[in-house]
Amino acid sequence: MESTIVKDSVVIKSRDFNAYFGTNHVVKNVNIDIPRNQVVAVMGPSGCGKTTYLRCINRMHELIPGASSRGEMKINDEDIYEMHPIFVRLKIGMVFQRPNPFPNLSIYDNVIAGYKLNGIKLARTERDRIVEHSLTRVALWNEVKDSLNKKGSFLSGGQQQRLCIARAVAMEPEVLLFDEPTSALDPISTSTVEELFHELKTNYTLIIVTHNMQQAARVSDRTAFFYLGELVEYDETKTMFTNPKDNRTQNYITGRFS
């Protein structure tokens, strides 16, 4: 298996990466190496550029009018900004803050939406396999296996979010990006989703933006702390929370500002 050979190699690499909204400089000179099959949490106060940085990784940032970026962003040593955005997004899946299943599609079709809506033809058995496998991966299969033909919006918020993760997982990406994936969920759904992260990192590299420090501490192997658009500190989560090197990190994790 490739993933065992290069287990510790870097998947995503940014060098001097900057992002802008118009003239507003929101991500400043970020250098980061994200290792394969790890969970990396990106935390920081509101408006620190963490979500913008995440959206630059799969080139969703540029969809906003006036948005631009500069610097180096690589996946497996290939420049993301020289690839076609469609290939980038097939390799790097994304889950959003609010669950957003396609309201016009059934649960089944939502899972294979990436194939179905892209016009990729699959044999019936193959589709069934992908749907069952993806829903099992996100611990949703048992809850929905009898209502696969119901609309995705019929599920509860937490189930919808897991459906959205299944939809991203179904495309077999290398990296999964999560933009505050639990901030719209209740505590029980939140812990279900958090458990998934441990499960998912055996196959994927996870980057999770969160404004919740406890969540970062619970789920991640490494943590990046953003403040005012800068990457202040990036380290093993344990080290970061027990022995931060930067004063600002220290102040943030001790709750002196948020």
Binding site: I86, G93, M94, F96, A113, G114
Partner: peptide, 10 residues
């Protein structure tokens, strides 16, 4: 809704 679609590489 649109973001969900774009994020799937459509």
């Amino acid at each position: 809704l649109k973001e969900a679609a774009y994020a799937l590489g459509m």
